[in-house]
Design a protein around this nucleic acid. Sequence first.
DNA 1: TCAATAAGTTACCAAACAGTAACTATCAAC
DNA 2: GTTGATAGTTACTGTTTGGTAACTTATTGA
Lengths: 126, 126
Amino acid sequence: MMETNGYDTYSCPVGKTIELISGRWKPIILYLIQHGINRFGSLQKKMPKISRKVLTEQLRDLEKQGLINRDVRVSKHPQEVFYNLTDTGLSLRALIDQIFEWGAANLLDETSQKKAKSLMLDQAEE
Amino acid sequence: MMETNGYDTYSCPVGKTIELISGRWKPIILYLIQHGINRFGSLQKKMPKISRKVLTEQLRDLEKQGLINRDVRVSKHPQEVFYNLTDTGLSLRALIDQIFEWGAANLLDETSQKKAKSLMLDQAEE
DNA sequence: TCAATAAGTTACCAAACAGTAACTATCAAC
DNA sequence: GTTGATAGTTACTGTTTGGTAACTTATTGA
């Protein structure tokens, strides 16, 4: 019987993956970016309850984790910053969709399901 | 263009689902319980780094969330407590497996992959 | 009667995380 | 040269989470 030093969060792929999308806002941010809401300001507008500080932190985290790119265009009037998903980010998004499906099926009452659906984006909108 | 009050974590099925398996140890606990490690003491042995306090808290959470049942057998010598997955818990486990797959494929180097695989359980063991 | 085992509980402390509000930098238009 | 927009940063504060260590309850077996 193999001797191990046991399970712990930080050696577990599940723990690590969940870390990527913890920080509370990250799944939503990834979702919005994928759907063309990819500026700091427009992200803020879609998530009125997040503070600039936390939004910055989360975006920096996602960048460090290799899930998004930060693309600054200085050439323009006020500097513009665009975010977009990396390949890893995109593949994680697919996983998040599965999590969404499970949650929608198992956790939400009907009213909430409608509300959630009403927030789904088909393509970029401002 | 529909007016909404925006996205936030607590109305999002993804956020709610992630909450279920946050608390750091919960995915591991669910995994172990499913594989027959279903006593307080044997769970502790498999996770040497969790404290009794936190283990108790996590188990109570999982119970409240309807993912596990707590089953006390007083008839025996010292009281025995068994935990097992509910149907919801089982279906969540399937989701966690998908998270595991993604994490193993995208996050771990080879050595860690081997370590993770070495911890996988096929059936109950002590 | 005393120690051991199972499964906790309690009080206390430290670190991590999140929120508020004020401040910064850059450029363009007026 | 002041205002306004974009995209932040910083200092401070409060809440949540997790960790340690000592204590608890119930029962069995020596």
